[in-house]
């Protein structure tokens, strides 16, 4: 009998909460529309920001990157595999010289990483003596790698930003007259203004190297 009563109770007219469909659909469609609009706007007006890696290799060839900007060049030297070369070098003097180069390169990268401002501030007008020293350094490393039968060769990879051609031409002018540059391979790629360098991906100055310094 109880079940019959409860069945009866189920069909009793109850006070249902009833609401119009219109305001909910209106809110729903408005939010969808606004979000789609924002999505379309962001895809049109903020083109993809691309981060580039700092250590680049192609087989045994390792990129010594030079980013050419309107205000000058930013140098991003490779370090990772240079440490491997240092390990196989038998001559103590050469090993010390490579250690010094590694420390200098890591120090430079550490400075760039520590800098909180715009990376473009690190762009310096290409200086003839500085470029000549870099070319000498790359040649020295490549020759030592060859001497020790170690598969490692640094080449210069230019990343050309818009309006960065002038700095590039200055560097190439120095290279054209340098004997050290004759054996160094070169690559170059055009870069868009919103392609940034992911400097945080680079190795930092480790305690062992600092001690050696």
């Amino acid at each position: 009998m109880a079940s019959r009563a409860s069945r009866y109770a189920r069909y009793l007219p109850e006070q249902k909460l009833e609401v119009s469909l219109f305001p909910f659909l209106s809110i729903f469609l408005s939010v969808m529309g606004v979000l789609s609009f924002i999505n379309i706007l962001s895809s049109i007006h903020s083109p993809q920001k691309i981060e580039m890696a700092t250590e680049l290799e192609q087989g045994y060839k390792v990129a010594f990157q030079m980013f050419s900007l309107p205000d000058g060049i930013i140098i991003v030297p490779p370090v990772k595999r240079l440490k491997d070369l240092q390990q196989v070098v038998t001559d103590a003097d050469v090993r010390d010289e490579i250690a010094t180069i590694i420390v200098q390169r890591e120090q430079f990268i550490a400075n760039v990483k520590a800098y909180k401002g715009n990376l473009d501030d690190f762009a310096v007008a290409p200086d003839v003596d500085h470029i000549a020293d870099l070319l000498k350094e790359i040649r020295f490393i490549n020759e030592e790698a060859l001497k020790h039968n170690f598969l490692y060769e640094e080449f210069i990879l230019f990343g050309i930003y818009p309006n960065g051609g002038k700095a590039y031409h200055k560097v190439r002018d120095v290279m054209a007259l340098s004997e050290d540059a004759a054996s160094i391979s070169i690559g170059l790629e055009p870069l868009d203004a919103n392609w940034t360098l992911n400097i945080n991906g680079t190795p930092t100055l480790d305690a062992g190297q600092q001690g050696a310094q």
Binding site: S42, Q48, A53, L157, S185, G187, E189, N198
Partner: peptide
């Protein structure tokens, strides 16, 4: 549910787009 998912998608796509890593092509002369 729909609004929540859309907001999450929008945030994720924004974060994802801004941190795309790119390996430079390295053609050599």
């Amino acid at each position: 549910n729909s609004v929540g998912i859309l907001i999450i998608l929008a945030v994720v796509s924004l974060i994802h787009d801004n941190s795309k890593a790119y390996q430079l092509e390295i053609p050599i002369e």
